[in-house]
Nucleic acid binder design. Structure first.
Lengths: 338, 338
DNA sequence: ATGAAAGCGCTAACAG
DNA sequence: CTGTTAGCGCTTTCAT
């Protein structure tokens, strides 16, 4: 079912069909009718692949993610809520390489899709810098370092400070931190927030209590296990994202530690899943839906050729207190004594 | 950055570059080296649009949805969890037309993408029948009527029976049902389950308590409001999906009704959001992640040319009791009297 | 072992 | 107003 079929059926040339489909003028009303009728009858829809190759624009925007996991799909829903009221269509692409090395997935995905299939894109947690190009691009929670494209993120520093303060408030002193992906600015800021929060409370950070979890539950498993089997194990863990916080609770369970009785755990992100764990996870909430929506609004502005006045949008984070954090054992006396 | 750039840089023809990229043999090792080096240096990745036009296969599978909402993104995550360990890449496409009429979105999306961009697809809640074609296709929670493609769904009938029984158990007699999208088999089965459940309890279904919510919170608002402002309003509402159940709780709140004190509400799906409402929503859980995963496994089998032994997979549903349902006022005496 | 050339489905100049 | 023609970037015969 191609444009040629339609042309033959309607008794015109493919060029004429193309004009009718794309609403170009210079076609007799009668011919338009006839072609439209055939298009409808045959249910013809032009192939994105072919169209995109020839035409400059496709009317399709992309949300490019490393993987389809809770974080990125929340963003996707937010982006969709905005784009659905625009004339653009939306696709999402998971560019993470299979098992192997994830670095540069965004560049590969972009090379693959930009220019041909999509007219603009939102990059979710890109790990490497994109040169400013004419291709409309918005980054969400981007990499460390100077940024050349408009971006949206949450107040990672403030959120991490709040998380740390919450644990300190509960009387914890031996607090572990499970770092995120070192290539991401968010991970850097969350660690910085943790350290600042500890310093503000007059607490030293024990280097053995800081491990790298990479935001990834699988890669985080060993560091978590190491942390929880330490001779002098922490009474609280601040994991840089919910996925690794949840993994921490699982491993604690396997080791016979009760959360929050023996161990308090706090995460970051507030993905929907964090409310479903037992006990429900205390975490720092990022407005993921709003982040996706804000990024899409910026992208649409870019598409319209507008200059985005504020190229870097930062949204608020909030402490979401649930059940996975509790006063440290002997906390009250400690604090009174200290 | 095209294959021509690479060819020029490497001092060979585009044909040779193409062969090297695609691992075809008949290229001198030295030439391969040289081309690979240039490809890496320039970061060249072939354009999906162009490649798909010419080649028979792209190595990309698609999850085609009407919209990116909680239901479809849960499926997406499940599908991803399987495809990530396969050689295929994954894209997702939201085919819902903007505001207008949604019928036939799956056919349009398929026409747009199949054959060129993607090698196979999972259709999430397709509303119209697809003829069996050579194009690998798996449907999730499909339309009413005879099915020509492999499909995956949950035990909608059993789930609806359980939901109804739960409300009856709590002593409710005036139970309203908010129907789903009439074009979907799931909606038909859930209504059937409701009616069977009522009959089993010896309860009559009051026709004025059965309204159409279309699975859509916006379209459901008026029917819900009508239901809750009825002279003799129901003491419990069974909504055909969580999204409209949540909307029911919102509207109840606006009308000054307390849930579950004045009104019990039960949903269907157990999307993550249902645990986050206040009160948390009692619902029938579908294993959405597993459904997506099962569909992807079937699709991969199809891709491998295997005959799927069991072309229709049905997964279990479970009652998830949370806070939005409670005994009907005066229930105990009613039941004893009855 | 390599390259020239055809063509995938479509759009956009340009002729007629 | 309509059709012919030339590619978009790529893969694939088929010569060389």
């Amino acid at each position: 079912m191609t444009i040629t079929d339609v042309a033959r059926e309607a008794g015109v040339s493919v060029a004429t069909v193309s004009k009718v489909i794309n609403g170009r003028d210079g076609v007799a009303p009668a011919t338009q009718e006839r072609v439209h009728a055939v298009v409808t009858r045959l249910g013809f829809v032009s192939s994105l692949g072919a169209r995109s190759l020839r035409a400059q624009r496709t009317g399709v925007l992309g949300v490019l993610v490393n993987e389809f996991e809770p974080y990125s799909t929340e963003i996707l829903k937010g982006a969709w809520s905005v784009v659905r009221d625009s004339p653009y269509e939306l696709m999402s692409w998971a560019g993470g390489t299979h098992g192997g090395d994830h670095t540069g997935w965004e560049r590969r995905s972009l090379a693959r899709l930009a220019g041909t299939l999509i007219d603009g894109a939102i990059l979710v947690t890109p790990s490497i810098s994109e040169r400013r190009t004419s291709f409309p691009l918005v980054a969400i929670d981007p990499h460390t370092g100077p940024l050349e494209v408009p971006s949206v993120d949450a107040d990672n520093l403030g959120g991490a400070l709040a998380a740390t303060a919450h644990l300190v408030e509960l009387g914890h002193r031996r607090i572990a931190f499970l770092c995120g992906r070192s290539d991401l600015e968010s991970a850097r800021l969350r660690e910085q927030g943790f350290r600042k929060g500890m310093a503000a409370a007059g607490l030293e950070v024990d280097p053995s209590l800081v491990r790298v979890g990479d935001y990834d539950p699988e890669r985080a498993s060993t560091p978590i296990r190491d942390l929880l089997t330490l001779e002098d194990r922490p009474t609280a863990v601040f994991a840089a994202n919910d996925l690794t916080a949840i993994r921490t609770m699982e491993i604690a369970g396997e080791l016979g530690l009760r959360v929050p009785g023996d161990l308090s755990v706090i995460g970051f992100d507030n993905i929907p899943e964090s409310a479903l764990t037992t006990p429900a996870l205390t975490t720092i909430g990022q407005p993921l839906h709003d982040i996706g929506a804000a990024a899409m609004r910026m992208l649409l502005a870019l598409m319209a050729g507008e200059d985005v006045a504020e190229p870097h949008v930062r949204l608020r984070t909030t402490l979401v207190t649930r059940e996975s954090t509790a006063p440290a054992v002997g906390a009250r006396s400690d604090r009174l004594a200290g």
